[in-house]
Write a protein that binds this DNA or RNA. Structure first.
Lengths: 336, 336
DNA sequence: CTGTTAGCGCTTTCAG
DNA sequence: CTGAAAGCGCTAACAG
């Protein structure tokens, strides 16, 4: 059962190794009959080329890295699905790196990736990332990088996000239009551009509509740990009793729902909530959750397509470009 | 910016390649000062070992394959999270293969994997898998495989599932205890053992409790396409008007909820639903969804641990073993 | 159309 | 303690 390799095939067929190699690649310089003989034997012996040996020689891996904070998350899992969708059509494989919002892990992964491990990288940076030296290094190493959702503006490469500012502005405006006067905001770390944009949209909407921005009503969470976040949110809502709430990510909105249930605060009568969310069953929640839905799957596809285009063109440097995709805002009221 | 490799380090330090290699591996046969010099330069030049070259030589990749039907799914994404959790501690990387329930893709992936691409495989087989020759091949190639959730019993290796039969039996019993007389069952393809077990649990519970098993009330779905499934479920419910429903996977239960909303059927008054589900926010649904929750994350961890144990022990053949983990059944009533 | 040869970057005998 | 050399499996000049 020793592994069958190209050498073995060559020996059995009385051909040279290179001929076999070429035949397998369907090279035009090999005779038809020879090709057939080679392919036939390869199939018979269930020959599988060694991906790594080929890659080592060719200096490419046919593999891309997807670096994300988490996978058990509606948004990221949809993005990964989209990425994989196009990767499969291109004959590429997907290596997953979960940073778990740990900056050091992210740095480690990116460093590791540099040595020809992958041909390209799709990344949504971790919450704690501040210094982005590691990403600059990667960019310099002629490994194409595409940022999605959580991006670093100052790395000159392709970036793809949703219209975070605009969507947040509109969403907040919706709350105002519904009569909310005291609108809270739950957000992820300020170190993330995406977070700053969302909060800015929220603030500007307030100001433009004659409401005062009260920074006490804006909370940033640096952790992912729900057991820590939940009591904070519950407390926050209990003390401040906002009548509107804009949430920067789904998880925070769901914790708000739980908090309200426990505090006997009626949504949406006492508190209207709108949140960025990829939750498909938002309409099945009672009360249903008003959502700002990012085109996660399509974003994954788009990001991957940009990357593969660069890979196919042999261009390692992607243009410093920022694409914004449109989110969909859906207001859902109580069905009663 | 040409890539810095071990050769370059050797040249700059006036050492041989092998010495550098050994120093980097902290081999005991290298002098302390030499080690320090090497490590210092490596750090300075940001040397990153070429993973593939090392793997080629060592005949191991420090990478495992995770083969699953989908990623944008609560259950699977949690499992992947668990797998990655232990992979990270072991210094392994995770290559994701999404079969999208396509048997041919699964075969292709498994074949591809055979040639040293990965050191081990964690797999939940695709719905359409019937012939498992490809899995036998893999098993023979001395690359360890662990099945989880959707397993093939006749491949002699480690398998890990939840107590599907028992949980289904209990869940169905719960419906009966609540007074349901006409209990429907929505299931995935019969080609999957897991599906047969779940349906069997349902049927046995009916029989043991004096209810007649009506095969017209059992539906198997061969597709994943919700646009196809939804109208079928809606029709099915409309025509049969069951008073209880046991669903084999979350997605089918959610489509049931939607169907009932559109048919003005009141859950749980007219129809009590219980489903296998990894949906964390099940209690936030209105009416809340009664669930059979598999320990997805822990299953991922457990499966990975079994695999790594084999890898560490250098045993390529895993014992033909079947571990069952316990699911949690939670009945949720309307809050009114 | 086919074969010879050199090497991708690394590890690992085998010699000293 | 260090070095020379072979080779993992494959591809790609360079010859014929």
């Amino acid at each position: 059962m020793s592994n069958v390799n190209i050498k073995r095939l060559a020996a059995e067929l009385n051909l040279s190794i290179s001929t076999v190699s070429r035949a397998l690649q369907n090279s035009s310089e090999i005779g038809q009959k020879t090709k057939e003989r080679v392919v036939a034997l390869a199939k018979k012996l269930n020959y599988q080329p060694n991906h790594y040996a080929a890659g080592l020689r060719r200096k490419q891996s046919n593999t891309i890295a997807v670096v994300v904070p988490e996978v058990a998350d509606n948004f990221f899992s949809l993005v990964i699905d989209g990425i994989d969708m196009v990767a499969q059509t291109k004959g590429y494989h997907v290596l997953i790196f979960l940073t778990r919002d740990d900056y050091n892990k992210e740095v480690g992964f990116i460093r590791h990736i540099q040595s020809g491990r992958v041909d390209g990288v799709l990344i949504s940076v971790s919450s704690e990332s501040k210094d982005n030296e590691h990403l600059h290094e990667l960019n310099k190493k002629s490994i194409p990088v595409v940022f999605f959702d959580r991006v670093f503006e100052d790395i000159p490469t392709a970036k793809i996000t949703t219209d975070d500012y605009k969507a947040s502005y509109k969403a907040t405006k919706q709350l105002i239009d519904k009569g909310c006067k005291k609108i809270a905001c739950l957000a992820i770390p300020e170190t993330l551009l995406i977070s700053r944009k969302r909060v800015q949209g929220y603030m500007d909407a307030l100001e433009d509509n004659g409401l005062i921005v009260d920074t006490d009503l804006v909370m940033h969470f640096d952790t992912n740990d729900e057991t820590i976040i939940y009591p904070i949110i519950r407390d926050f809502i209990d003390k401040n009793r906002p009548d509107g709430l804009f949430s920067s990510i789904e998880k925070l909105a769901l914790l708000t729902y739980q908090s309200c249930a426990s505090l006997k605060i009626n949504i949406p009568n006492d508190l209207k909530v709108i949140s960025f969310s990829s939750l498909k069953i938002a309409p099945l929640l009672q009360p249903p959750l008003s959502t700002i839905t990012q085109p996660a799957f399509d974003m994954g596809k788009a990001a991957a397509e940009i990357l593969f285009k660069a890979l196919e063109d042999g261009k390692s440097d992607l243009k410093d470009d920022h694409i914004e995709m449109e989110s969909k805002i859906v207001i859902r009221e109580s069905s009663k």
